[in-house]
Amino acid sequence: MSTLIIADHDNQALNPATLSVITAAKALGQSITVLVAGSGCGAVAEAAAQAEGIEKVLLADSPAYDKALAENLAELVISLSSGYSHILTAASTTGKDFMPRVAAQLDVGQISEIIAVESADTFKRPIYAGNAIATVQSLDAIKVITVRGSAFDRSAATGGSAGIESVTATAANDRSAFVKEELVVSERPDLTSAQIVVSGGRGLGSAENFDLLARVADKLGAAIGASRAAVDAGYVSNDLQVGQTGKIVAPDLYIAVGISGAIQHLAGMKESKVIVAINKDEEAPIFQIADYGLVGDLFEILPELESKL
């Protein structure tokens, strides 16, 4: 039996989360095929072929897969699914979107956002915003799984030399169409793969004040994150939200500034290696999980931090 991984990418580069999926797949001990579906995504297939431990790369290069429409991706995966006992992808917004369609069309369940592989059919996954961890056994012949990238180390991006095989594209569906996208362009590292994340909450008070945070982040080469409260208040865009329903991050260092620490936020960052909390409320729940807590006025602390870094 073998494992099929659907690569997550933007037609230019492989999302590092896919390397974490490869680590999860290796724990299954089967040969691994990676499917790269996109448009003009040859470079992504080349990158996938160099990843260590990959047997084969399937390349489906067609306008139908340009914007990762769930209907089209699911159709393709179904057309290629025979012979695979496990189908894995990253729990990105793309993976979360198309993968349940694959499971439903195969008439099997899906195991979402696994954080550990116990055996070929048994996996651990967080439930209730990470307040409980379930060990789940799949009873289906085909295991359809999404993988939480932050829970697995990245497999080596080089050292492999898999062959690339082109596959026939399936037809594009005529019921859903891409209209436009507004992607945030940032010079900073990507939130989910950054080694340091500096996050702001409602305590920042305004979009302008996020600049104070940004300056500290730039000194540290860090990504910027935010609590739901800060996003809802319009201080920053939605793609920066860390939490149960936003991004799940596990950097080496997470600095939470003006964030009280609602359980939904903690669910998104409590696996970070070192957590720093800066908050004027010394009773804030964030201090209960922080390695280092600094009680004080963030409007004084942030400029001081910036000047001393």
Binding site: A177, F178, E181
Partner: peptide
């Protein structure tokens, strides 16, 4: 709401 920002689709 997608990982990189916002993406708009038209569905029949």
């Amino acid at each position: 709401e997608v990982d990189g920002g916002l993406k708009t689709l038209a569905l029949k």
